[in-house]
Design a binder for these strands. Structure first.
Length: 289
DNA sequence: CACACGTGGTT
DNA sequence: TAACCAAGTGT
């Protein structure tokens, strides 16, 4: 089926008033918002995004600060490597793109922390290019409406991009709203747990509804590992203390964050490897400057 | 391709 | 309460 004739009018009527959809929102703002939205819910992103753009209105502003400032300002958004990547992005844009966010998908893909989704989201939403934007929401909408499946398949660019590309109208504004509308539909209506088919603009044409909404049959998606007691948690605790300190923390001080030395050392080593922490037992540990 | 990677709200 | 879920990327 073709989703755009139904999705585009629905989106224009029902789109949330989000910061990155306001007129005059800059490509840099779009880039920052997309980094923050990688695996972090909209509601938690909005206030932090406003702080970032007020403090760093352009890539050059962020690039002029040390990475530690970015990691601190990232606060508790999660996956703090994104803060480091975003800072590195700002440096690369300043040095290699005259301080302007590139519109070319391949140029975007070459930047740190930008993958298939983010590159096309920036090209489509910041620059109005007709490129397929496929995130987990879009894959779920396509899986149900087009393929008749209850759950989306794992991300696969070879499959996802041509499938969405075929859904994009020629008109640029319609193409942009098809991308944004499919995401919005997946976020608000065609949701993972309890889809609201009663209010869905695609319901009458949805392949999954037409099949009687069959259960997912294939193998279940891998369940997320437990956070309590994980290396992730220990990394988070170490970083929390480093963010809060103006001076390097000694190995002794870090012992307080986690009792088990083996796991604590493993977490610290991985943070050092990731570049989220610098220093040593002698000079102390701190955020990268 | 499977797995690691934060954090907090919802069911 | 444990499990699930949230606009992914890098290895």
């Amino acid at each position: 089926m073709t989703i755009s004739p139904l999705v585009v009018p629905w989106f224009r009527e029902n789109a949330r008033d989000l910061p990155w959809r306001r007129p005059g929102f800059t490509p840099w703002g779009t880039l920052v918002s997309e980094f923050m939205l990688q695996q972090t819910p909209v509601a938690r992103v909005i206030p932090r995004l406003a702080e970032w753009l007020e403090r760093w209105p352009t890539p050059a502003d962020l690039a002029s600060c040390p990475p530690s400032d970015a990691v601190r300002a990232w606060d508790r958004l999660g996956y703090p490597r994104r803060a480091l990547n975003l800072h590195a992005c700002a440096v690369a844009i300043t040095e290699h793109h005259s301080g302007e966010v590139p519109s070319d998908v391949d140029a975007l893909l070459a930047l740190p922390g930008i993958g298939d989704y983010t590159a096309r989201a920036i090209a489509a939403f910041a620059f109005g290019l007709r490129v397929p934007v496929v995130d987990t929401n879009v894959r779920r909408v396509l899986a149900r409406a087009v393929e008749g499946l209850a759950e989306p398949w794992a991300p696969n660019a070879r499959r996802d991009l041509p499938l969405m590309e075929a859904q994009l109208p020629v008109d640029l504004q319609d193409a942009r709203d098809t991308n944004a509308g499919a995401m919005e539909l997946g976020a608000l209506v065609c949701v993972a747990r309890a889809p609201r088919c009663d209010i869905c603009p695609l319901a009458d044409a949805c392949a999954w509804v037409l099949r009687g909404r069959p259960e997912h049959d294939g193998p279940k998606a891998r369940t997320q590992k437990k956070y309590e007691g994980s290396d992730r948690q220990v990394r988070g605790l170490i970083l929390r203390d480093l963010r809060a300190s103006d001076i390097p923390l000694t190995a002794t001080e870090l012992e307080a964050v986690w009792p088990e030395a083996v796991q604590r050392d493993r977490a610290l080593a991985s943070l050092l490897r990731d570049g989220l922490v610098t220093g040593s037992g002698d000079e102390g540990y701190k955020l990268p400057e």
